[in-house]
Amino acid sequence: MVEQVRADPRVDAERVVLWFFSGGGLFAADWLRSAPPWLRGIALAYPLLLPFPGWEVDTRFLPVEALASGGDVPLVLARAGQDPRSWPASTRSSRRRPRRAGRCG
């Protein structure tokens, strides 16, 4: 789908930001791990950064580990409200400043 959007003549294919929210945050991992040169940033809005306990998820879909891989794509993390105690600790603890915060490329 990203390639279809980039192919649209109304889109600057060399300046794209991807936006992931909620449970879709797990899909950000590949992009965080190895961002193509046209990817100018990733926005994560109230993302799930680790799966809920009991979820069987391929290790490919772990944004927390991807962040540690040292990619350099600019990252915006947005949160709202307070997380229920039943949510994974990684989601509740996302209020801690990510290591790459503040770098705007």
Rank of each mutant, 00 (worst) to 15 (best):
37 P>G: 08
38 W>G: 06
39 L>M: 06
39 L>D: 01
40 R>Q: 14
40 R>L: 06
40 R>V: 02
41 G>P: 04
41 G>W: 11
41 G>S: 08
42 I>Q: 00
42 I>T: 07
42 I>M: 07
43 A>S: 11
43 A>H: 03
43 A>R: 06
43 A>D: 02
43 A>M: 07
43 A>L: 09
43 A>C: 12
44 L>F: 09
44 L>S: 03
44 L>T: 04
44 L>R: 08
44 L>H: 10
44 L>D: 03
45 A>I: 12
45 A>K: 08
45 A>V: 14
45 A>P: 04
45 A>G: 11
45 A>D: 11
46 Y>L: 10
46 Y>T: 14
46 Y>V: 13
46 Y>M: 11
47 P>C: 10
47 P>G: 00
47 P>H: 03
47 P>W: 13
47 P>R: 09
47 P>L: 06
48 L>C: 12
48 L>Q: 14
48 L>P: 04
48 L>Y: 01
49 L>C: 10
49 L>P: 13
49 L>A: 05
49 L>V: 13
49 L>W: 06
50 L>V: 02
50 L>E: 13
50 L>Y: 09
50 L>S: 01
50 L>C: 05
51 P>L: 03
51 P>C: 06
52 F>D: 15
53 P>A: 04
53 P>V: 03
54 G>T: 02
54 G>N: 10
54 G>Q: 12
54 G>M: 11
54 G>L: 10
55 W>H: 11
55 W>A: 15
55 W>Q: 14
55 W>P: 06
55 W>C: 12
55 W>Y: 11
56 E>M: 09
56 E>L: 13
56 E>H: 14
57 V>T: 15
58 D>Y: 09
58 D>S: 15
58 D>I: 14
58 D>M: 11
58 D>N: 15
59 T>S: 14
59 T>F: 06
59 T>N: 08
59 T>M: 09
59 T>K: 14
60 R>P: 03
60 R>F: 11
61 F>E: 02
61 F>L: 15
61 F>N: 03
62 L>Q: 12
62 L>D: 13
62 L>K: 10
63 P>N: 07
63 P>E: 07
63 P>Y: 03
63 P>T: 09
64 V>S: 12
64 V>E: 14
65 E>C: 01
65 E>F: 00
65 E>V: 08
65 E>T: 07
66 A>Y: 04
66 A>M: 02
66 A>S: 13
66 A>D: 08
67 L>S: 01
67 L>N: 00
68 A>H: 03
68 A>T: 09
